[in-house]
Design a protein around this nucleic acid. Structure first.
Lengths: 337, 337
DNA sequence: ACTTGGCACTCGGGATAGTGGAGTGCCAAG
DNA sequence: CTTGGCACTCCACTATCCCGAGTGCCAAGT
């Protein structure tokens, strides 16, 4: 269908367009890349590529521009992942090593990715479900209010207020805390649900209403609110691209947690690199952007995802390299702490 | 210096310019506002206003545009604070009442402000120093690592990792936790510093190195890292204004926590409304924006600040009304929880 | 001393050509 | 299948024009 040279032409078009931002013509193609054929030949190839939908020309008698389909082919078959330079690797390592906190790791990661790729970076907080509970803390705030704090082994702290049906005594709190810690300490969050279901029997009947309230909040924060936070950085990089009118749309999408979750969440399997190009995107307002994402986590289990978002005309090999490298380092950092 | 009518003219210029975004001329002024004088008279007034630096004309033979100084005068003497409509008040109330969490309060507030004013909203987390400690928790993460969690009465949870010089036993942790809670529970964060200074004497000598490490982290999170987080929302609203090239600068500034702290922090006294116009701004990249901010908190003490950021050409009365109202409601919510 | 109408002047910006050049498609020959 | 040649197509850029909104100034009116 597409002979080798046509593929090379497509690759060249993508590369040139990405670096110049201008439609690329047959003439400039032949001298920038050393294809040893004439422009006329290239034109024939381009005509075919256009017919197949890999490229288009914005106006008659202008150069060609890759379509989403073109980028897709480029990513799938024509380009690899460009490894980072040693200097960049070192920079990543030292920058991330300085973090002392889960929050800090995430914050630094997002900055790092944004700077490295000059695009928008998105980083999802490590999912709760994969980690285990290190500690449960109950703090009385008022006679009918508690603060529940869950601490996980990834260093994450989840806090929720609990409204109680009845007033609670100081030692009832202590008792409840003891029960919780006895049953939940060290448990994987995934199994917590079943454990919690049996808990009511462990407390005295008159404490049961209060205890149940606490338990349901625990379940809540693990399941219903299992939707994790996504942090965005480098939004300023959007201005370098002329989204012109779409910019507003994009910025709006980036402020919606739900949208971001959908964006990252629906990327199938973890660990490997996912590239979502233009209209392949599930989110309405981001149809003119591409996402390069990867899962990260301790060990081989992906805890969450991170990636960069940019115009469809982005430098995929470099972005993929950066995302993959950062994902690995973050995984290491998390595992080591 | 400036007669009554000249002030009226300035006010009219500001109002018209804010609503139309176009330089305003003498003719359009007289019929939009019912000044019962002729355009020529207005021109004379405008000449004076321009001479004094309150307005400028972008090009010869164009209308006038207010300068920073003009806006300043407008805010100080020519306009009040426009109260919100009852409908808006209700909306604020119900929207904020749904929050169940400090995080949630802040998140909702930022969205609320952004939507209400159609500008960028900035909300600072309630400062630690003004509140008191509700609970201190120590969780062993590894033999030489602890997680320190401070819970305040505003429901805020502050977490820090602690690296210990020596390995620590489980019961040493328990002991330390007991000491900490005994001494710190209920203390204002402001007084914690002095209390902590005396703490080392309360632990056995061989635990002292570890204890000291913990204490210094506590001090750290209260003082050195007393720089609180600022949350930004509604960045998409910036696209409505044609900052053209400055947009990048502004977006970049908004991503820098340090910058945001400086922006909000240096506004003098709390509780009252602060307006910072254009070049009055301490931050380089925000010289073309204005900030309307107010302190908020429980009772009469301001815990932190919140506000909106927009082009110098913004609707100050409305923005001030929204900021003031939101600040009050947030204060109430925090006090009630 | 201010206000007002008149008037000449300025200048930005939108509309209307004109032009050059990059790029194309096609064709006929190698 | 490749290639050079050639006519054709537009886009982007510049130049020019012109309209109108707005100004400053002046002389007359109150």
């Amino acid at each position: 269908m597409l002979d080798d040279r046509k593929l090379a032409v497509l690759r060249a078009i993508v590369e040139d367009y990405v670096s110049t931002t201008e439609p690329v013509g047959s003439k400039s193609l032949v001298d920038r890349h050393n294809l040893d054929v004439s422009p006329a030949t290239i034109r024939n190839d381009m005509a075919v590529l256009e017919e197949q939908g890999y490229i288009v020309q914005p106006h008659t008698s202008a150069g060609r521009v890759p379509t989403d389909k073109g980028y897709r082919l480029f990513v799938d078959r024509l380009s690899g992942v460009k490894p980072l330079s040693p200097a960049e690797r070192r920079a990543i390592e030292t920058f991330l090593a300085g973090a002392y906190d889960l929050d800090d790791v995430v914050t630094r990661t997002v900055r790092l990715l944004a700077q490295l790729t000059r695009q928008v970076a998105v980083v999802q907080y490590p999912s709760l479900t994969r980690s285990s509970i290190r500690h449960v803390e109950l703090v009385p705030l008022a006679s009918k209010r508690l603060l529940l704090v869950l601490i996980t082994d990834t260093g994450r702290v989840e806090q929720r207020g609990v409204e109680l049906p009845d007033p609670i005594e100081e030692d009832a709190v202590t008792q409840l805390r003891a029960v919780l810690n006895a049953c939940l300490d060290g448990r994987m969050l995934a199994e917590v649900a079943s454990v919690v279901a049996e808990l009511p029997q462990r407390v005295t009947p008159d404490e049961r209403p209060n205890a149940t309230a606490v338990f349901s909040v625990i379940l809540d924060s693990l399941i219903e609110r299992h939707e994790e936070r996504v942090v965005v950085g480098g939004a300023a990089n959007l201005t370098a691209t002329d989204f012109s009118k779409g910019l507003r749309e994009v910025l709006e999408s980036l402020e919606e947690q739900v949208v971001l979750m959908r964006l990252l969440g629906e990327t199938g399997d973890h660990s490997s690199l996912t590239v979502r190009i233009g209209a392949e995107n599930p989110v309405e307002g981001l149809r003119s952007t591409s996402l390069v994402a990867a899962g990260y986590g301790t060990g081989d289990q992906a805890l969450a995802r991170l990636g960069v978002l940019g115009p469809t005309r982005m430098d995929y090999p470099t972005a993929m390299g950066a995302v993959r490298a950062v994902a690995r380092y973050v995984g290491q950092i998390l595992a080591g702490s």
